[in-house]
Amino acid sequence: MFSFKKEETVEVSVRPDELELLKERKREVEAILRDDEALERIIRYLLYKELLSKREALAKRLAELESSYRELTEFDVKAREDRKTFMELREELRKENNRLREMLRGRG
């Protein structure tokens, strides 16, 4: 962010390492700031590069999400089938164990 201190001065805050960079490249930065045509061309180029890296990051994120979603969908189907199997088996075992207990009582 920047703030207007005096009419003809704008201040920005930067990290110490960034200040060093600006100090080193002061003349080059001033030259660009004075050249309207170069400034706009560079800004557009920077924006283009930023969009390119954003596109790359988004495409990577999307591929990861698609893969996770596919795996999760497959796992969900399998878990639902297993639940059905478990419930059917529980019912079968309940009946069979009752029958076996009855048989044991009959023997006793």
Binding site: K5, V10, V14, R15, P16, L19, L22, K26, L33
Partner: peptide, 15 residues
């Protein structure tokens, strides 16, 4: 003038 000030100390660069 654009004054870049360090967040940590009083150093600055004036463009």
């Amino acid at each position: 003038r654009i004054i870049a000030r360090s967040k940590r100390d009083r150093r600055k660069v004036v463009l």
